[in-house]
Amino acid sequence: MRTVIVTLLAGTLFGAGLTVGGMTDPARVIGFLDLFGDWDPTLAFVMAGAVAVMVVAWAVQKRLAHPLFAQKFSLPDRTDLDPRLVGGAVLFGVGWGIAGLCPGPGLAALAIAPLPAAIFCAAMLAGMALHRFGFDGD
């Protein structure tokens, strides 16, 4: 039960951060990605804040023997890089650029702009279902 409460609080904090940071506004995201047009640099500050938080988190993690709610840390390493991961990252970036949303902000946007966010979330779930049932290109 404790893990569920912590997970719920972390998800709520994440969604609030996305909303306050403007990541749930597709126009702002697309404006940030429009480097050669009407560029909106505000998300650069959001990303810089996220990097600063992660610098502190990595420093704290190095001093911990294990996470609070797990037996060990599951950290990525260089062997995780493969063509499927790179292809997925490219597909993610293209989708983010077209829709102005990615999964986290898309879900958080359901509370702000339910209809456009629901369309995005339905397409996201369809893609997940296609992958789950073996239609992932393999």
Results as ranks from 00 to 15, higher is better:
L85E: 14
W96A: 00
C102D: 15
I30K: 15
F32G: 00
A44E: 04
S74L: 14
V60H: 00
T42K: 09
T24M: 00
L18W: 11
A27R: 03
K62F: 14
G93D: 03
G17Y: 01
A109F: 11
F14K: 00
Q71S: 11
V60E: 02
G95M: 00
I112W: 04
V56P: 01
G104A: 03
F14Y: 12
P103Y: 09
P76V: 04
P116W: 06
A27C: 00
P105D: 05
R78I: 12
A111M: 11
Q61D: 09
M47I: 07
A113P: 09
A27T: 01
P41E: 09
T19F: 07
P26M: 03
D38H: 15
P116C: 02
W39D: 08
G31N: 04
I98Q: 07
I98A: 08
R84N: 08
L107V: 09
L18A: 06
K72N: 13
P103F: 01
P76H: 06
L91G: 14
P116S: 09
P26A: 00
A109T: 07
F69L: 12
V53K: 03
F14V: 07
F92M: 03
L35Y: 13
I112L: 04
A59V: 11
A10L: 14
G49S: 08
A111H: 02
P116A: 08
A10C: 14
H66P: 01
M47C: 00
P76A: 02
Q71K: 11
A89T: 09
R63A: 10
K72A: 14
L13G: 05
L115G: 09
A44G: 11
G93F: 13
G21P: 11
T12I: 11
T12Q: 10
V51L: 15
G37E: 08
S74V: 14
L81C: 12
Q71Y: 11
V53A: 15
R63F: 05
L101M: 02
L81N: 13
R28W: 00
D25Q: 02
T42N: 08
F36S: 02
T12F: 13
L33M: 09
A70C: 10
D77Q: 06
T24P: 03
K72R: 12
G106Q: 02
L9G: 04
V86T: 12
L35D: 07
W96P: 00
A52L: 08
V46P: 01
W39E: 01
Q71H: 13
G87A: 06
T42Q: 08
F45V: 11
G22Q: 04
V46R: 04
A59M: 12
G95W: 02
A65N: 12
L91P: 10
L18C: 08
V51N: 09
G37R: 07
L110S: 09
A27Y: 02
P67I: 03
I30L: 07
P103C: 07
A70K: 13
L35E: 00
A111C: 05
V20D: 06
G88D: 10
L85Y: 13
P116G: 06
F73N: 05
L64W: 05
L107I: 05
V53C: 09
G93A: 11
T79Q: 05
F45N: 06
D38G: 15
D34R: 03
F32Y: 12
M23V: 10
G88L: 02
V86E: 07
